[in-house]
Amino acid sequence: MAGLLKNRYWGIAARGLAMGAADVVPGVSGGTIAFITGIYQELLDSLSRIGPHTLTVLRKQGVAAAWRQINGTFLLALFSGVLVSIFSLARLISYLLDQYPIVVWSFFFGLILASVVPIMRRVPRWSASCWLALLLGVALAVLISEMRPTEVPANPYTLFLSGALAICAMILPGISGSFILLMIGIYPKVIAAVHELQLSALTWFAAGAIAGLLLFSRLLSWLMHRFPSVTLTFLVGVLLGSLKIVWPWKLAVEGSASVGDKVAPLMSNVLPAQFAASSGQPSFIAEAVLAALLAVVLVLGLEWLHWRFVGKVVHR
Rank of each mutant, 00 (worst) to 15 (best):
F79V: 12
L17R: 03
H225R: 14
G174K: 05
Y100W: 15
G280R: 09
A286P: 02
S162E: 05
S200Y: 03
S283F: 02
L223Q: 07
R91T: 12
L4V: 10
A192E: 15
L136I: 13
Q274D: 15
I39F: 08
L294W: 01
T203K: 02
I86V: 15
A286M: 11
G212D: 06
Q69T: 06
S80Y: 05
D45I: 10
L135G: 14
L302P: 05
A169F: 05
R122Y: 00
F216M: 11
Q69W: 11
L300A: 08
T56S: 12
F234I: 01
A193N: 11
V270H: 05
Y187T: 01
G237S: 11
S268M: 14
L235T: 06
I33C: 06
V190R: 00
A201K: 14
P282C: 06
E196G: 09
K262E: 13
Y9S: 05
G177F: 02
C168L: 07
V28T: 06
G260Y: 07
A276C: 07
W249T: 02
L302S: 09
V138Y: 00
A114N: 04
L223E: 01
L220S: 01
V238F: 00
R91C: 02
T233S: 15
L266I: 12
G31T: 07
E151G: 06
A264I: 01
A291L: 10
L305P: 00
A18F: 14
L76V: 15
F79N: 08
I33Q: 07
P124T: 01
A139G: 11
S200A: 14
V238I: 15
L44W: 08
G301T: 10
E287W: 14
V25K: 00
E254R: 12
A291F: 10
G301K: 06
A277V: 07
V246Q: 07
Q41I: 05
E303V: 01
A252P: 11
G16H: 04
M147I: 08
A201H: 13
F35E: 00
E287A: 15
F79E: 02
V25Q: 01
F79A: 07
N71I: 07
I12Q: 03
V190F: 11
V313W: 13
L199C: 08
A133Q: 09
L136K: 04
L232P: 03
L111K: 06
A209Q: 02
L214C: 05
I191W: 00
S106W: 03
K312F: 01
R8I: 09
G280C: 12
M224F: 15
V236D: 12
L219P: 04
W304C: 03
M267V: 12
M183E: 08
I12N: 03
V104E: 07
H195D: 14
R122T: 00
W249N: 07
Y40L: 11
G51Y: 06
M267G: 02
